[in-house]
Computed example of a mutant assay.
Amino acid sequence: MSSSSSNVNLETRSPLDEVICFNKGGLFDLGHPLLNRIAESFVKASGIGAVQAVSREAYFSAVDGNRMDNTGGMPSEVSNAKKHRLHGLRGETSSKSLEAMVKNTGKESLQWGLAAGIYSGLTYGLKEARGANDWKNSAMAGGITGATLALTSGDTSQEHMVHCAITGAAISTAANLLTGIF
């Protein structure tokens, strides 16, 4: 809790106190810093995942509306990304299309939140257990998070899981090593 609201009783906090608390990372108080960190990371990343999913769908709806040929002249990364959309999403204004978008947004929100919660919890736990906050913690947390995310995709083969674990560990380690450089 921030110093301006530390003397304020929970029942009498104003909306401004809540916003100040949110900005300082005090979104939850579940009784333990590890639980607080996991919950906050999950909620914040879930929101980012939802915005990303809705933005992507809006983009593809706009592109589909402006082109008769869906792949003609489109960069390969755009046409490849379209393959990952739900089959029910066709840029229509029907209840099925809206329902598919809501399901897709929920799934992606859950995946983003899961990744952030697992990674944040693991880095915190490893820091507490090892007594160090270094690239090794990042590599381990990134690898476990990557493997876990592989389980949420359609392809749960061992090769895919190993690929995701290595990618997660590499990205996490690189981010840790580059902290403070930029």
Rank of each mutant, 00 (worst) to 15 (best):
R56S: 12
L98E: 09
C21M: 12
D155V: 06
I166G: 05
S157D: 13
S6I: 06
T145L: 04
A139D: 00
F60G: 06
E11I: 15
A100V: 06
G65Q: 07
A165Q: 10
S5Q: 05
H32T: 10
M74P: 01
N104R: 12
A147S: 07
P15D: 02
T156S: 14
K82G: 07
S94W: 08
S138K: 00
R13E: 06
S5P: 03
S94Q: 01
Q111W: 02
S14F: 08
K127D: 09
C21D: 14
W135N: 01
T93L: 10
V102T: 08
S138L: 01
K127A: 13
E92D: 08
K136F: 11
G26N: 13
R130E: 00
I171H: 03
S94H: 05
K103I: 14
S97M: 00
S61W: 03
K82I: 04
N80G: 03
G47T: 08
K96D: 15
L126S: 01
K107H: 10
M140W: 07
S4Y: 11
G113E: 00
D29L: 04
A39P: 05
H160W: 12
Y59W: 06
A39V: 08
A116F: 07
K82P: 02
F42W: 01
S138D: 07
T93D: 15
G117V: 02
S157Q: 10
A150L: 07
G113C: 03
S109A: 15
N36M: 07
G26T: 04
L35I: 02
F28H: 10
A45N: 04
Q52V: 08
S109M: 14
H84E: 12
N176M: 13
K96E: 15
N70G: 09
E77M: 14
E57L: 11
I48W: 12
I38Y: 03
S2A: 15
S6T: 06
E11D: 08
V102Y: 10
S94N: 10
W135Q: 05
L30Q: 06
Q158K: 05
N9Q: 13
M68H: 11
R56M: 15
A53D: 06
L35W: 05
S14D: 04
K24H: 11
K107Y: 09
E57F: 04
P75M: 13
G180E: 06
A62Q: 08
N36K: 05
K24S: 14
Y59Q: 01
E18W: 15
M68I: 13
G72C: 11
W112F: 11
A115V: 02
T93E: 07
T156R: 15
D29K: 11
H84L: 14
L178T: 13
P75R: 11
L122G: 00
L149E: 01
S76A: 14
S2F: 01
T173D: 13
G65R: 13
D29G: 11
E159A: 15
W112E: 00
S172V: 06
N66T: 12
D64I: 09
E159H: 14
R37M: 03
L151S: 13
